[in-house]
Amino acid sequence: EIRWGGAKHEPGEKDDGRKLHPRSSFNAFLEVVKSRSVPWKDYEMNAIHSLQLILRNSFNDSESMDVSTKTIHSKLYDLEIEGMQQLEAVTSEIVRLIETATVPIVAVDVDGLVNGWNTKIADLTGLIVEKAIGKHLLTIVEDSSIDVVKRLLYLALQGKEEQNIQFDIKTYGSRVEAGPISLVVNACASRDLHENIVGVCLVAQDITGQKTIMDKFIRIEGDYKAIIQNPNPLIPPIFGTDEFGWCSEWNPAMAELTGWKRDEVVDKMLLGEVFGTPTACCRIKNQETFVNLGIVLNTAMTGQEPEKIPFSFLSRSGKYV
């Protein structure tokens, strides 16, 4: 409810020109509004706080303070308390979200000392929050990752936030036997009210499982290549194709048998350019053999076990194989 004075201008309202008094538009009137205001914006709250400080200083400088001034002080103080309570509530909610997040989150100050360590990273590493807080981040990561993390923190503290940076972190307690944890992190600079960088927050993703699988694949791939490319005469002739039909493998025994080197046939169509008629590298004697070879390759592509079939061709020197 607000009691206004003047400038309402009701329809049909007229002044009595015979009497000397303030015109009727100056009469006080009551306005009642029932609703909720839209939420305050951050910049509006900042303006209110600035006004609060200005008013407070002006009142402090005044030698005398009447009842109305004390009332304003009281209301401003109430606004400050309410604003602080709202800020504390928001801060508490953010902390709760970080603590219960399903991804690992680590925060450090400008010196690299851990000041944030959520539940997920504690579960992954076996290092509880109480022991993690205050440790330098470089003492927690694996030695092989120290240079990577150093650079990550240095750039973040300069305001350059890197993304998708991979490094390994140590494990503790019951998690030691599982080995280090591999993380991919995004760095985010933490700033104070004056936009000064006061730390770095690292939001991570655990890729330990994916990395383990990839490492195994790389080892298997290395063993496979070591066998395929081995010039040992006990290794039989081997050739292969990718899913699109291009020749992807041609081992030394195959090169010896056909007279065609590996780099001369790889990345050519296995059926048509490598084996085929009449201009292929290894010319097949007849069309029936060509068709049968195509059936065998396509059967293997579908994941089925193809039948073994014999096929013959002419080597580079014209020798019948």
Rank of each mutant, 00 (worst) to 15 (best):
A187W: 08
V184S: 09
L202C: 01
I197T: 02
K170C: 09
N186A: 11
N196H: 14
D192E: 13
I218R: 14
D215C: 00
R219Y: 05
V203A: 13
L202T: 02
T171R: 12
I181Q: 12
C201P: 00
G209C: 00
C188E: 12
N186I: 01
A204V: 01
N186Y: 02
V203D: 10
I213T: 13
V184Y: 01
A189V: 05
Q210L: 10
G179H: 05
Y224A: 08
H194D: 12
T212W: 02
L193M: 05
Y224W: 05
K216P: 00
Q166P: 07
L193W: 01
N196C: 09
K225I: 12
N186W: 02
N196V: 11
R219N: 12
I207Q: 04
Y172I: 03
N196E: 13
V198M: 02
L193R: 07
F167W: 12
A226E: 07
V203M: 15
G199C: 01
S174F: 13
G179D: 04
G209P: 00
I207F: 05
L193P: 00
I213F: 03
D215R: 13
F167R: 06
A189T: 10
Q205V: 12
V185G: 06
Q210R: 08
T171L: 07
C201H: 08
K225L: 13
E177H: 12
D223T: 08
C188L: 13
A187K: 04
C201Y: 06
A189G: 07
G173Q: 09
D223Y: 14
A178S: 15
L183E: 06
R191K: 15
R191E: 05
D192T: 11
V203K: 09
Q210F: 09
I169T: 09
A187P: 03
D192I: 09
S182P: 06
E195P: 00
G222C: 04
A178R: 15
S182R: 13
V185C: 14
A226K: 09
I227E: 05
G173S: 04
P180N: 12
T212S: 11
Y224M: 10
L183A: 10
I213Y: 11
I218Y: 04
Q210H: 08
Y172Q: 04
L202P: 02
N196T: 11
L193D: 03
A187T: 07
F217N: 08
V203H: 11
S174P: 06
K225A: 12
A204M: 03
I181T: 15
A204P: 01
Q210K: 09
S182Y: 06
V185L: 08
G173C: 03
H194N: 13
D215Q: 12
G209D: 07
Q210D: 10
D192N: 15
T212Y: 03
T171D: 02
